[in-house]
Nucleic acid binder design. Structure first.
Lengths: 164, 164
DNA sequence: TCACGCGATGTTACAGTGTATCAGCACAAG
DNA sequence: CTTGTGCTGATACACTGTAACATCGCGTGA
């Protein structure tokens, strides 16, 4: 897909889907959870795409050839996958991406959403987390979850632009 | 409404609605924009509530007594208000709150959403912004807008809880 | 073996959120 | 007066998400 070197922290492209599936399988085995066909298929659909997918997009992709997957089922699978940290929801897009990292559970994620190509990258930043914790403490607020999404232009698109 | 002292940075309660309206009026005059009745009413509805309101909630509130405000109209008013920084959208809730600060345009806002009472507080944190900018720069990402929403428990609710 | 419980899925229906489109209206500019 | 522009009204529709109920498969205990 795209090869940049610099930016790419979690290799969302190409071989990512197999990784994600393998990781999911392992995790479900550990936790004694069912990694069913539907869940597998949904995860695969999300993982083979750098862009965020809507639940209905996923349903459409999984349907065809005599199989019909309703959006409800997709939502249930997505609930399962997000609860187990295998997939993340992009609140600003009402869409989902597969988790590229194997970050420690509590890590605060930062989503980088490119306006130009629509792809989503995912990072963590302990420094941001620290500062945020400090800010919250000062406000007397006890956090339980956070959403941090940045929209802008990714390195790849910036490069393409400057070359033109 | 709630009186806490410590936490309250922007006095979202009580008298806030008049402030918001006055500020809006001033801002629209400056920029030569129309602060119409609908826009005024929508802003007022949002400003008199600490909780985030959905577009349909607002439409409902403004309807009655022979007046019928369709959701479409509310959305248009909300678009106007958000574009001019008078109202903010809470992505994780598909809802809107009036802006309590008169922050400098580019300030990165942090929304504190209380799970218990549902109210929303709003802060800024230059330190978080700095760290985030650094992180983004390292990733070669050029930001144009950001969403930072934290869910948890606000100071008021923590207090109530510990007293019980 | 059979009944039962339990979790996952299928199915339908519906609620909530948001946009497209066209028409009317007011008001200012020419 | 005409025209254009921006705001609103109204209808329709697309997209997102949930509720409720039926079914199926599978393990477990009687």
């Amino acid at each position: 897909m795209h090869d940049l070197g610099a930016v790419h922290e979690h290799a969302t492209c190409c071989g990512n889907s197999v990784d994600a599936l393998a990781r999911a399988e392992r995790l479900c085995a550990e936790r004694d959870l069912q990694f069913t066909r539907l869940r597998r298929d949904v995860l695969e659909a999300v993982a083979t795409e750098t862009k965020p997918l809507g639940a209905y997009d996923i349903a459409e992709r999984l349907s065809g050839q005599g199989r019909r997957v309703a959006a409800v089922s997709v939502y249930r699978a997505l609930d399962f996958l997000t609860e187990n940290g295998l997939v993340h929801r992009i609140a600003s897009r009402n869409a989902f991406v597969s988790c590229g990292h194997q970050h420690g559970e509590g890590a605060g994620l930062v989503f980088l959403i490119c306006r130009t190509c629509g792809s989503i990258d995912e990072t963590t930043s302990p420094e941001v987390d620290d500062q945020l914790d400090r800010t919250l403490a000062k406000a007397g607020f006890k956090p339980s979850s956070r959403i941090l999404e940045v929209e802008g232009e990714c390195g790849a698109c910036l490069g393409r632009e400057s070359r033109s």
